Simulated scan of single mutants.
Amino acid sequence: MWRKKTAWLILLGLAIFIKIFSLFPDAVEKYYASGFYPVISKLQRILLGWLPISVGDIFYALVIVWLINRLYKTIRRVAKKQTNKKYWLQALAQLGFIVLVVYVSFNLLWGLNYNRRGVAYQLGLKVERYSKDDLVQVMRQVVSRLNALDSLSRVNREALLRKRNLFNGATSAYDQLARNEPHFTYSFSSVKPSLYSYLGNYLGYTGYYNPFSGEAQVNTTVPLFVQPFTTCHEIGHQLGYARENEANFAGYLSARSSQDPLFRYSVYFDLYSYSRFYLYAQDSVTARQLDAELSPGIKTDYHELREFVKKYRNPMEEVIDHLYGQYLKANNQPGGKLTYNEVVAWLVAYYKKFGAEAI
């Protein structure tokens, strides 16, 4: 009994400490994001990165099986009228203990990164509200980059069918970036194809990070030109950029630094989509004018992506989108799923500080 009480006290103490600590971004940045987290994340990647299969995906599967089994047993007991007040109190206590374990382990292993200063702080960017003119200027640079990369990105696109080429390419992109920006140094790679890639097509995800195993998973069944930026985005999460807009920006900086034209094409392809979302809401005429400037190959890729999304659209995807949006809001991202698009603000700030050639 005393062991259970001790475990409860330790978990409660850690949970309270984590909550209070998370209120101080400077301390989180200094002691966690730049101190404790890099050590624990590297250790995770050293231990599991060499395995060809995703341990985190297997872990999730086992958890789901366990939950289904517990639910089945509970329903049976209820049906047989074998439950009483003591049973439900014990069940509630077990649930509370599990929630505490998940909360503490999630935050210690990665989740506190939601409360760090992040990319803008590290790069000295002034991220603020931007005008339509600022957005259009950045988008014109993105269109120029996309058009220049259109033909080059198709020369050896099929090479990414070999997943190792995709993952090594993303690692190399971060190596290039880290030469000038050591904050983005990525060592001990642990990027793997998701065991649930086809499921991801129906649920609407292209990749995800598992904080319990330190592995980055990529949906390798989506169109090839989407995968490079997705991979760089997930590595951004591994480096401690928990918020989706910041992981997108880390993905942008790395993919843009790649020597592979398809990686550069992939990131500008996504950035155009994010930027166009905001421009179209303000000025649909200008958005369509920029669309018209895209080369035919790029338009073909956008059509392919739209058809791919349409093929797998289903009611469950909307439910998952809503739940994930609520998760993001609960983790310091009030924009929900629109947080991904907010990378545009970082891009505009980067443009203003370093100029058009930096885009």
Rank of each mutant, 00 (worst) to 15 (best):
R179D: 02
P182H: 03
P182C: 08
E215I: 04
Y252G: 15
E246F: 06
Y186H: 10
C232H: 10
V267H: 10
K192D: 03
F167I: 00
H233N: 07
R256M: 02
S189Q: 11
R264A: 00
F229H: 13
T220Y: 09
A170D: 08
A247C: 04
P228S: 14
Y202M: 03
R162H: 12
L239I: 02
Y274D: 08
P182Y: 00
S189E: 14
A281E: 15
V222C: 11
P182W: 00
N165W: 04
S172T: 13
C232T: 08
L177H: 01
A170M: 02
L271V: 01
R243S: 12
N168V: 01
N219I: 03
Q217C: 09
T206E: 13
P223F: 06
Y198E: 14
N180V: 01
L239P: 13
Y265G: 07
L271Q: 09
Q227I: 06
E215M: 10
Q259I: 00
E158V: 05
S254V: 01
F184W: 08
G240P: 14
Y280F: 13
A247P: 15
C232G: 05
S266D: 05
A173Q: 02
A170Y: 11
D270F: 12
E158S: 12
T231C: 03
L224G: 01
L161K: 12
S273M: 04
R276T: 10
P223N: 06
R256I: 01
Y208E: 09
A255N: 12
T185G: 15
V191K: 10
D260Y: 02
F225Q: 04
Y174K: 12
R243F: 07
L253W: 03
S189A: 14
S189M: 13
L160E: 09
F184Q: 02
D260P: 05
R164Y: 06
N245R: 14
S258L: 02
A281N: 14
Y196S: 13
N165T: 09
S190W: 04
T206Y: 14
T221V: 14
A281L: 11
R179Q: 15
L279W: 14
A242I: 07
P223Q: 11
Q227H: 11
P193I: 04
E244G: 07
A242F: 03
R179C: 08
P182K: 06
S187V: 02
L199I: 04
T185F: 01
R264E: 07
R179M: 09
G200H: 07
K192Y: 08
F269R: 10
P211N: 02
A250M: 06
K192G: 05
L224T: 00
A178P: 04
A281I: 01
N201Y: 06
S194D: 09
T171F: 11
N219F: 12
P182D: 11
P211S: 05
S258T: 00
Y268Q: 06
H237D: 13
A178N: 08
N248L: 06
L239V: 02
A173R: 03
Y280N: 07
P223E: 13
S189K: 15
V218A: 10
R164M: 06
Q176E: 15
L262T: 03
L279D: 04
